[in-house]
Amino acid sequence: MQIREYVKPDTLEEAYALLMKGKANRILGGCTFLKRTNLKIGTAIDLAACGLDYIREMDTEVAVGAYTSLRTVETSEVILREFGPALRESMEHLIGVQLRNAITIGAHAASRFGFSDIIPTLLAMNAKLRFYRGGVKTLRDYMEEERLEKDILVEILLPKEGRRTVVQMARLSYSDYSVFCLAMSRAGGNWIVSAGAFPGRAKLAERTMAVMNGGPVAREEAATLAENIAAEYRFGSNYRGSAEYRRELCRVFARRGIEELAQ
């Protein structure tokens, strides 16, 4: 990692102009991964003065500013009341309070990290991202985008849809990255199923979701649906676990998730 110049603009407008000014210019997030990269940054743009550290409750959604730390999110009463503990659960294994105070939710989500448990959880929560230039898009679309435009993530929008979300993870030790993560949610007849750390970048089980959203889901169907969900992912092996083990975890977690949410 190498930074030529550091700037802390006061407005997003200025920040965006700086970002577009040079190919090597970057927006800084929590910087907890920066050191491990070989990035050569021209102008490092710090948005700390742009007022992006907030959790705002509105009528139909909760907006979380991109510079809000994971620690702020996990201790938010609004988020717990509206969405339950899943988001907190997806974060609390990230080592410690003092690291989660540093990591910002915007940078984490924008990174599309494959190891993340937070991203599949946000996917299951039907989260949307508001960009400075590109406006609002779903996290799902963002995860699928092939070529990302240079832009600034302003906030994450969590829609108040009465969605119940559960997240299940398996890991070798408490603060290790997951071997596999599955998040699932239901709002009325609408289901979202997303997996991460398989070990690829998180994505939805679209085909099975379509089936599940096409009619009522009975608990008895859980095993079959889980089988179908597992069939949608191309699992890989790494030193945390084999593809076979991940598939097995996916089956079990999907079945358990459906059983829990189906009533």
Binding site: A170, V179, Y245, E248, R251, V252
Partner: peptide
């Protein structure tokens, strides 16, 4: 956990679930 699950499955001769 992977070793444990594998051993359980081998013992039970199939998938645990």
């Amino acid at each position: 956990p992977e070793k444990v699950l594998k051993a359980i499955q081998e013992k039970e001769g199939g998938h645990a679930d």
